[in-house]
Amino acid sequence: MIEGQIALIRRELWEHRAIYVMPLVIALLVSLASVTGQVAVSAFDHAVDIGILGATNLGENARSAAITVLMISLSSTFVFAMWILTIFYSLDALYAERKDRSILFWRSIPSTDFETVLSKLLTALLVIPLITFVFIVLTHLVVLMATSVWLGARGANTWHLLWTAAPFIDNWTATLVFLLALSLWLSPFVGWSLFVSGFAKRSPFLIAALPIAILPLLERIVFDTTVFAEAFFVRSVKMPLFRGLDNLELLFQEGEHFKMVGDASVSLLSLLDLGRFFSSPALWLGLVVCALFTTAAIYVRRYRDDS
């Protein structure tokens, strides 16, 4: 079973190369942008030197906070792209094999429909976040190294300024937890996409998007309530993972002035509240919805007869 799953998941990576090509491209672009930025900023020679001097004199916490902000802003690009990738992957996962008729071949292999659909669900919820995580870590390292070379060339003590100040373990653990929690939190959308991908005769994207656009509208008109609107839209931005905060408030606190999390705490991990996350009924409801749609996708693949 486990060996079979590994083979099936490896198969997904062969077919959907975007799973690692997309984060790779983002990693390259982000790294390139940071180097370009350094070159551009170098034009303001004097100001840069004063800045470096100022930064060197900051306290340990303030330096850590500044680097944390840098690391978060790098990571957030990946998180956004990861979600687009996950949804498009899920919409394609059971559709492509029917479109090119290779489903007949895949069904001639001794793997059950349950095992096959499970491998696609695991790819969406586990493999994509893990691969994204690896690229986030690599990007952090590359950008910090580039910065280090640049600052070093200007005579700064980069060991003091960057490397001892960067809270790597804390930041990376928190990022990994965040990515996996986000997967679970948004899993109903993955389940829905897999299901649509399994039955749509064409345009799975449109078919998946329509009810998400129309249901809240209908509900508003007919019942004047916003249950669906909240389930669909508020869910994507409000994850109960953080101590007393929802994830958008993490970067932008209320009021006109946005305040970076770094001011509040250097430790991202200390912001995470797994107890709150796992005791949230909304999480479990979402997982149930995901399981139902995935089961439906398995049944569609099993009982569908295209002849």
Binding site: G4, D100, S108
Partner: peptide
Amino acid sequence: MQNICFIADVAVLPRWIRVTQLLDFIEAVH
């Protein structure tokens, strides 16, 4: 499916896969 094989028609092998990849895959699952 462990004891039966079928060829439905020539078009059904997935077009994106490499020969070695398909051998790897079948070796792992069959």
